[in-house]
Structure formats: structure tokens, C-alpha cells
Write a protein that binds this DNA or RNA. Structure first.
Lengths: 205, 205
DNA sequence: CATTGGATGTGTCATCTTTCACAAAGTGAA
DNA sequence: TTCACTTTGTGAAAGATGACACATCCAATG
């Protein structure tokens, strides 16, 4: 396994994992790069090459055992364990994120929710008590939380990110429609549905 | 302007546009590829080359007039107009999407919301009346709606997509955690925050 | 007016990514 | 066993994307 694997390869692994989970839920036990590729709209060669970065998971003539490949991918992605996640922002967007069950179902447990509005502190969103942003640094570092989600207005997102980073967060999922500047050692991913829509309208006549 | 511009270039234009809107909101009137690149973590050469696909928007020695570049990008992306969008699914996720103000603010107006649950029909989510999925085909084709968002359980997403496509939808934003198979003439973008988280955990020690 | 400084647009080159194509290996049937 | 068929893993080729570097142009200043 080479020391550095292209990020674009890494970005496809969760897609493969998701498809495998679906197949296994449907009771299927074995699949092939060709079948997977057909489901995902990806060439079979690409799937094989991507997987080959991490070792030979398949068997010639047979394909891949779904349960085994799933386990291997989970380990590669480090999602065979559970992760604690902090959420900053309990407005419309933040509340929706807090209530979304899909995170915990797939191993990402929101354990703290922060907001800056004094009138929200102590109230609940879903099953979480809202805490003041002043406590971010202490709580995150004490609990060694490495992943955070930002769902605050764009104006405040950079400042929140700075606080999170200095508290020890290493991965940020940013729902605010703004680019964040963080050290190279911190990973950021963005969710902005409007960007996706704008990308598609280009192709509409 | 070449007849076919790489999709990866198109995918960056909304990011540029978002940054320009931010700068102009802050009162700035002129920027440069260098400054933009610094904000976005992209090389200045790449920004210049991307923009050059569509003509010379800047002036040597000066840079880009923000208002003008914004207008041009909006036209290129076809977001200088408003778009009608249909939403399918009024569960937890769909309701949150329906209530999110960011779509209308940026020109994407949800005009119809559909759900399959009989007990939800006629009720409201935000300012929308929930309609039965049986009416999708008729309403979408009568109103020439070209863009739809899917926020139904993964099990039903493909079927919903098929219906939308046959009704004339040409662009789909899919919140369901599953890949959709659609004709080449239809564009699909995916929103699955867990995929982004899983991509980042790979890099966490 | 001439000169200096700064920023674009772009040809060229380097790097990254995907596809191709095939040897090697496993399966199942006769 | 042998044969026909399937599918992986992987070098090598092709293709796509990004970085470099500079000629060209514009603005501002003395």
C-alpha cells in the first residue's frame, strides 16, 4: 500500500461502501466490479484500480464477498468505530442537522450542540441541550472531539472555525455558504445545495 | 468560447460567484485573480484560465470589476433568472429543505411539494400545501418544471426519479443516500453529508 | 510623454487520472 | 482432468487537468 493515495480515490470509497451496504441489506453476498460499476455509473476498471490501492480484496473468477469488502473499506476509512461530533449553530439549519437520524445510524454521534443566542441556551433541540459557544473550547478539548459541523450564518463561520481548530478539531463539515481558511492539518468539506443547483442550470437550455 | 467546456470548470463557477457576492456585499468593487484565489484556496492561474473559457472579463493591470463579473457568471450559469423547483418528500428531511430560505434567496423557488403519505396530503410545510405524488406528472409537465429535489427514503428514490424524468425534469438534486440511474440527458447531483464525514475520517489518526 | 508596476490571458509543459487490455487465477461442467 | 467462462489486479497508454511563465496591456505618476 503506497504511502500516499490520491484524495480522489479516497472520495470514492464512501460511495462504494454505501452501495455495498445497500446490496448486503438486499441479501446479496457477492458482487463484481462490473456490477458495482453499473449501479454507480463508474467503470469497472476504476473500481478495481481504486480498491487495489489497499490490497487484493477480490477473487478472480468470483468477484468480491460483500461482507468482507465492506469491513475492509470501513477499516480503511476508519468508520468501523463510532465518532463524536460537535455541532455549532442551533438555528433552522442547525436544528434540522441535529434532528437528522442519518448521522448516528452511520456512526457519527452528535454529542454537543452550541449556539451563541442567550435565549436558546439550556433549551433542547432533539435530545440535546444547547450550550453557549463560550464553552466550545473547554468541552471539545476535554472530550477530545475531532469532528465538528458548522451551521451558523456565513458572517460567523470563520470565527467559529478558528475556535474549533484551536480547541483541537481536525475535520469540519461546513454548512455555511462561505469558504473557510484553516491550517493544512485541518480538513474541511462543504455542503451548499445551491452550488449543486447552479452547476446543473448551466446545462439547461 | 469552445463548444464544450470541462464540467470541472463549470463546477467551480458557482464557487467563484458565491465569493464575488460576498465581496460585493462587503462593499468591494474590484478584485483580482490573486485575491480571489487566496480567499478560496485556489491558484490564481486556475481562476484566470477558468474564466477565460467564457471570454475576457478582466482588465490587465486592474483586475475584475466585481459587479460585471458577477453578472457575467450569472448569465453563463443561467442563474440571472429565477427557477421553479419541485420537492418530493415531506418527512423530516424534506420539511427542513422546504423551510430552508437559502434556495429562494438565490433564485431557486420551491413551488410544489409532494409526498406519498395520505395523512400528510393537504397539510402545510412552511408555506406549501403538500400534494399527493400521483399529481407529480401532471403538475410538473403543465408547469414545465425542469428542476426537482428528492428527499424520500432511499427505497423509493429511484422510482420517484423515474417519474420525475418522464414528467420532463432535467436536473435532480438527490438527498437520498443512493445512486440514481437516469438517462444521460438528465443531470443529477447528490447531497449526503455522511459521505463527506467518511472522507475526512480517513485522514484522522 | 515615458516609465514603472501590476494583472490578465494563454501557449506550453508537467502532473494527475482514467481507460485499455491482458496474464493469472478461480469455477463449474462434462 | 480438461475446457469454457468469468473476473481480478495491473502495467502501459491515453486523456484530462493544473501549474508555469511570459508577452501584452492598462493605470498611475512624475
Amino acid at each position: 500500500m503506497p504511502s500516499t493515495i490520491p484524495d480522489i480515490v479516497i472520495s470514492r470509497l464512501p460511495v462504494y461502501l454505501r452501495a455495498l451496504e445497500r446490496l448486503s441489506q438486499e441479501g446479496q453476498e457477492v458482487t463484481s466490479s462490473h456490477e458495482l460499476g453499473k449501479h454507480l455509473g463508474i467503470s469497472s476498471a476504476q473500481i478495481r484500480k481504486d480498491l487495489s490501492h489497499f490490497g487484493g480484496f477480490g477473487k478472480q473468477g468470483t468477484g468480491y464477498k460483500i461482507a468482507y469488502l465492506k469491513d475492509q473499506l470501513r477499516q480503511v476509512l476508519k468508520v468501523e468505530r463510532d465518532w463524536q461530533v460537535a455541532l455549532v449553530g442551533a438555528g433552522d439549519l442547525g436544528s434540522a442537522v441535529a434532528r437528522y437520524r442519518g448521522f448516528a445510524e452511520r456512526g457519527f454521534h452528535i454529542t454537543y450542540v452550541f449556539d451563541s443566542a442567550p435565549e436558546k441556551i439550556g433549551k433542547r433541540v432533539g435530545s440535546f441541550v444547547i450550550r453557549p459557544v463560550d464553552e466550545i473550547t473547554q468541552i471539545i478539548s476535554e472530550n477530545s472531539i475531532k469532528i465538528a459541523m458548522i451551521a451558523v450564518p456565513a458572517e460567523n463561520a470563520q470565527q467559529v472555525a478558528d475556535t474549533l481548530v484551536s480547541a483541537g478539531v481536525r475535520a469540519i463539515l461546513n454548512y455555511a455558504p462561505i469558504n473557510l481558511n484553516v491550517p493544512d492539518s485541518v480538513h474541511v468539506q462543504y455542503i451548499d445545495p445551491v452550488l449543486h443547483l447552479q452547476r446543473m442550470t448551466y446545462y439547461l437550455t
